[in-house]
Structures are given as structure tokens and as C-alpha cells.
Simulated assay, not measured.
Amino acid sequence: MKVLQVFFITALLCSSLLAQASESGSGDPRYTIQNPPAYAMLGDLLIARPLLVVATVIGAGAFLVSLPFTALGGGVGDAGQALVVDPAKAAFVRCLGCTGEGFERRE
């Protein structure tokens, strides 16, 4: 009888630990899904996205101005990535309210 009680208590503890582990995810950032709250989505839509679009346009202008110098130095790809591609990805590809590099599609 005592062995049966210990078995059931252990099973309950293990099931609660497994439920907590499945809710928190695997810890691998590729498999975590961001679920931002509504205020984060609103702030992103009204403040962050317009600023990122402006940063993309200014970065494209700076890239064009610096293109002769970066071409001589061999850093055209790095300059384009930093000044144009990264802000554009953050403005147009990132999910609304997400804070990480979550450029993958959500299902």
C-alpha cells in the first residue's frame, strides 16, 4: 500500500514538471514562439515601424553616398547589410511586437 502511494505521488510530481517544461519550451530560440502583448504591438506599429522605415531610407542614402569609398575598401556587402538590409528586415519582415530576430513565419 505504501509503495502505491509513493508511486502515485511521484507520478503526479513528474507530470506537473513535464507540463511546466512543455509550457516553457525547449529553451532553443529557434523553437520559441513570441506572443507579444497588445501594447507592444501598438507601440511597434505606431512608433518603431515608422522609425525603422525612416532609418532604412536614411541608410540607403548613406549607403549610396559611401559607395565609392566602401567599394575601394571592399566592404560593399557589409555596408549594404548594416545600412539597408538589417533596418528593412526589422521594419518589414519581423512580426508585429516581436523583439528578437524572429524573421521566420509563424504558423
Rank of each mutant, 00 (worst) to 15 (best):
I58S: 14
V57C: 11
D28F: 05
V6W: 10
E104L: 10
P29C: 04
V76W: 03
A11Q: 15
G80Q: 01
P29T: 06
T99K: 15
F8R: 08
F69T: 06
R106P: 14
D78I: 11
G43P: 05
M41W: 14
C14Y: 12
I33Y: 14
Q5P: 04
S15H: 03
L18V: 09
Y31S: 09
G97M: 00
D28A: 04
I47P: 09
L83H: 01
T32D: 10
L4Q: 05
P36K: 04
I33H: 12
T70L: 00
V84T: 05
I47C: 06
Q5L: 11
V54M: 11
V76K: 00
G97R: 01
V57T: 07
T56F: 09
L72C: 04
F69N: 08
N35C: 00
V53P: 03
E104C: 05
V6S: 06
I9M: 06
G75I: 05
L12E: 02
V93F: 02
P36T: 05
D44T: 11
L13Y: 12
Q20K: 08
V65C: 00
M1V: 04
D44H: 13
P36V: 03
K89C: 01
A38I: 15
A11Y: 08
G102W: 01
V3T: 08
K89L: 03
T32Y: 13
V84S: 03
D44W: 14
L4R: 06
V54E: 12
A19W: 12
T99S: 15
P50C: 11
G59M: 00
L51T: 08
D44N: 14
Q81K: 12
D44P: 12
L52W: 10
M41R: 15
E23P: 13
V3D: 03
R30W: 13
R49Y: 10
G73S: 07
L13D: 05
L42V: 12
G59F: 04
G102N: 09
G97K: 02
F8S: 06
S24M: 03
Q81W: 04
T99R: 15
V57N: 07
V85I: 04
V93D: 01
L13E: 02
D78F: 08
A79H: 02
L18T: 08
